[in-house]
Computed example of a mutant assay.
Amino acid sequence: MDGERASALRQIFVRAIGGVALAALVMGGAAACKQDEGGSGSDTAGAKVCDLKIGFFGALSGADAGLVTPGQQAAKMAINQYNAEHADCKVSLQEYDSQGKPELAGGLATSAVNDAKVVGMVGPAFSGESETANPTFQQAGLPVISQSATRPSLSEQGWKIFHRGVGNDFSQGPAAAAYIKGLNPAKVFVVDDQSAYGAGLADEVKKALGPLVTASDKATDNQQDFSAIVTKVTGSGATALFYGGYTEEASPFLKQLRAGGYKGTFVGGDGIYDANMLSVTGNADVEGAVATCPCAPATEAKGTFVADFQKEYNAAPGVYADVAYDLTKIFLEAIGEGKSTRADIQAFLTSYSKAGAATGVTYKWTDKGELDPAQVRVWAYVAKNGQWAPDKEIPKA
């Protein structure tokens, strides 16, 4: 009889404690809901939604990092400036280092969408990794704006979350071809690295050059010996060569072309428009090489951007730094206006139409996420004395 009574008392005690715990859990959940109800910048719930994150996705290490790290620096600077004015409700930059490799992009994209605090993504920076990551972002409703992924087909996949902050290769390809035609070449040789970006851009250049293209060839990822292609180029009679791809292969290729006696003009797309192409190739071989880019010179950006960047990093802003800065500020503007969910920020982008503080470009997008064609600009840059010197804006076709 005593044992039964003790057992009954224990059950009553457990039920009582369970009831208290359940009540605490319900009240805690209600408090948490109340914390988030008002959204960032709203006082209706008595609290703001803080500690949100903006992602930055691209090659932050590896051979092609020179194309991405200036944008990462600019994004970080934009967030630091925002936090200085919003010390009570800060935003952080969450970095995803893809090393420029599509095979790493899927896992990074999954990590990003599983972090509920990440409400917007600057990038992915390259087209190949975009093809891998964007389906995951689409499924999770995470809005993205790429500062430099230019493959045209990215906007044809039905990804509502996709936005591009620059022109695509339908603009860069013909512009590069127009620049090459201005060199009055006898013949043109075209080489690409078979990447989503490089092959697509080279195809657009070939279309625009037409019969001027005497021959073409393919490089491979991580290729270091280009002797077979060099032999073809030097024997082709081409006085200009277009390379579609990235610095990692373009640099040794150009060095071997010069060693093989090729004197023609080497032209590449924005995949070679970085500091590594200059320093790794060396002044003697890279001098006179040309890079096209759907971007104006970052060193001539508007407002205080150049001075702010120089003060922050003791260096001039590099490729796409001004674009990434503006795109980050668009996400920050949304957060500052109380948009605290991915869906709210996606809706914010859909109707956005304002000029960027650094680029002066009016950012507004078509229903496929393409930048308004009227805002697209393509520039040519020439390697001079170890620097990329702005040559000219290439007129639109």
Rank of each mutant, 00 (worst) to 15 (best):
G269R: 01
D270P: 00
D270M: 04
G271I: 04
I272V: 12
I272Y: 00
Y273T: 05
Y273Q: 10
D274A: 14
D274Q: 11
A275W: 02
A275Q: 15
N276E: 15
M277D: 07
M277I: 02
L278R: 03
L278S: 03
S279T: 15
V280I: 10
T281L: 03
T281F: 02
N283T: 07
N283H: 06
N283K: 14
A284V: 15
V286D: 06
V286M: 10
E287C: 09
G288M: 13
A289T: 10
V290D: 03
A291R: 04
C293I: 00
C293R: 00
C293A: 14
C293L: 02
P294Y: 09
P294L: 05
C295D: 13
C295E: 13
P297D: 05
A298T: 03
A298V: 01
T299W: 10
E300R: 13
A301W: 06
A301K: 02
A301G: 01
T304R: 09
T304H: 11
T304W: 06
T304Y: 08
F305P: 01
V306N: 02
V306F: 06
A307L: 09
A307N: 15
A307D: 15
D308C: 08
D308K: 13
F309N: 09
F309Q: 03
Q310P: 13
Q310V: 14
K311H: 09
E312P: 06
Y313Q: 07
Y313V: 07
Y313K: 12
N314Q: 13
N314C: 02
N314I: 03
A315W: 04
A316I: 11
A316Q: 15
A316L: 14
P317V: 04
P317E: 10
V319K: 04
V319W: 00
V319L: 11
A321L: 04
D322Y: 09
D322R: 09
D322L: 08
V323I: 15
V323Q: 02
A324V: 01
A324I: 04
Y325G: 00
Y325T: 07
D326I: 03
D326S: 05
K329H: 13
K329A: 11
L332W: 08
L332T: 04
E333M: 15
I335P: 08
I335V: 15
I335C: 04
I335K: 07
I335W: 02
G336E: 09
G336C: 06
E337P: 00
E337W: 01
E337Y: 11
G338Y: 02
G338E: 12
K339L: 13
R342G: 03
R342H: 05
